[in-house]
Structure formats: C-alpha cells, structure tokens
Simulated assay, not measured.
Amino acid sequence: MKKICLLLADGFEAVEAAVFTDVMGWNQFEGDGNTELITAGTKDTLKCTWNFTVTPEMHIRDINVDEFDALAIPGGFEEAGFYKDAFSEDFLDVIKKFDKQGKIIASICVAALPIGKSGVLNGRNATTYNLNNKKRQKQLSDFSANVIADQSIVIDNNIITSYNPSTAFDVAFTLLELLTSKENTTNIKRLMGFIK
C-alpha cells in the first residue's frame, strides 16, 4: 500500500486538494487498490480559500515521514492566510524531511512556494503560478529555484510543481502513475472520463 500525506494549510484551495482525494480514492476502489491518502493539517480545523471548512485526519506535528511514500500539497491564497501556515517552520520541516528521504512531493500552483522556501528547490527546476504579472514565479526564483516559466508541469527528480489550478488533475494523475503504473493510471483516467 502506497500512503500519501495530503498536507493542508489554512487558506488552501479546496479544488486543488480534492483532485488528490478523488484520484487516489478512485484508485482505491476502482484501480489497483494500492493507494491510501491521509489528510494532515496545521490546525485541527482548517478554512479553505472560499470558507469551506475541513477537519484533517491528523495534525502536522503527528506526521511520521517514514510511514508515507509521497507528500501532496495544494496551493492557496495569501488573502486567506495560506502563506502564514505554509511558510511556518512545521510545514517547511515536513517538506525537508520528505525530500531528504527522496520521497515524491507533488504540488499544485503556489504550493511550490513553501517547497522553495524550505530550501529543497535550490538550483532545481520548478514552476508556480504563471499569471498576474508572474509575481509568484519571481518569488520562487528568489528562493533559488530555476523557474521554467512556460511549462505547465515541471518534474525535477522527486518534486512535481505546476503553474496554475488548471493543472491539478494532471498533477494528481502524475503522482498516481509514479506510485502505481502507467497502465493503472490510464485505467483510472478512463473510468473518470478523462479518456475514452
């Protein structure tokens, strides 16, 4: 069984978290059954960008990286408090521990920024939110990442980054393929109606 930690900060975008829960859930029931997703949060109750409230299954302080095969991080909005949580020492420490063990870290949109702030993208290829004057891509560059501005998904070794919410399902399917197989992922895409 491959276990994925879905790491949530206040102000995360629900749709970006939901793609991971749905793709891994579909795989659990309709695919090879070899994925389990556990939600972990910076607080006992989190508020999404648009005021949707979520209760994670575990607190960030209780994460044992050895028990997981991958980390998934949805992005969020500054106005909703995303960076306050996502740039916290606890959040950055989890990212560093997953990277140190070479485990997959999959992020969507601005979730690349805490990965960059943690230092693990220093000199590595990555991308992040690509619109609105490319402010977030400059911020990622300031964290010493080599920003690939015109590529929707960038994979550098064990880290997956993407450039806006439209990439969310593709990131989740990429993670599923890395954890299971191309054939299994193609089957899940077909069952979910993404391919015929």
Rank of each mutant, 00 (worst) to 15 (best):
P56R: 12
H59W: 00
R61L: 02
R61F: 00
I63V: 15
N64C: 07
N64T: 14
D66W: 00
D66M: 03
E67N: 14
E67C: 03
D69G: 14
A70G: 08
P74G: 07
P74W: 10
G75D: 04
G76C: 04
F77Y: 11
F77E: 05
E79K: 15
E79H: 08
A80H: 05
A80Y: 01
G81T: 11
K84L: 02
K84W: 00
K84Y: 01
D85E: 11
A86T: 05
F87R: 06
E89K: 14
D90V: 02
F91L: 02
L92V: 02
I95H: 11
K97Y: 07
G102S: 06
K103M: 05
I104E: 10
I104N: 09
I105K: 15
A106G: 08
S107L: 04
S107C: 15
S107A: 15
C109A: 12
C109N: 13
V110P: 01
A111E: 13
L113G: 08
P114A: 06
G116S: 07
K117S: 01
K117F: 10
S118T: 05
S118N: 09
G119H: 09
V120D: 01
V120N: 05
L121S: 09
N122I: 01
N122H: 10
G123Y: 11
G123W: 12
R124T: 01
R124K: 15
N125T: 08
N125V: 00
A126M: 09
A126H: 13
T127H: 07
T127P: 02
T127M: 06
T128M: 09
T128C: 12
N130M: 03
N130H: 12
L131N: 12
N132F: 07
N132D: 13
N133W: 00
K134I: 04
R136S: 13
S141A: 14
S141F: 01
F143L: 05
F143V: 11
F143A: 12
S144H: 15
N146Q: 07
V147T: 07
I148V: 15
D150E: 14
S152Y: 09
I153E: 03
V154K: 02
V154H: 05
I155L: 08
I155F: 08
I155R: 12
I155K: 14
D156N: 14
D156Q: 03
N157F: 01
N157M: 00
N158M: 04
N158D: 13
I160W: 06
I160V: 08
S162L: 04
Y163P: 00
N164T: 04
S166Q: 11
S166E: 09
S166T: 13
T167K: 04
A168G: 06
F169M: 11
F169S: 06
D170G: 02
V171E: 02
V171P: 04
V171C: 05
T174H: 04
L176K: 03
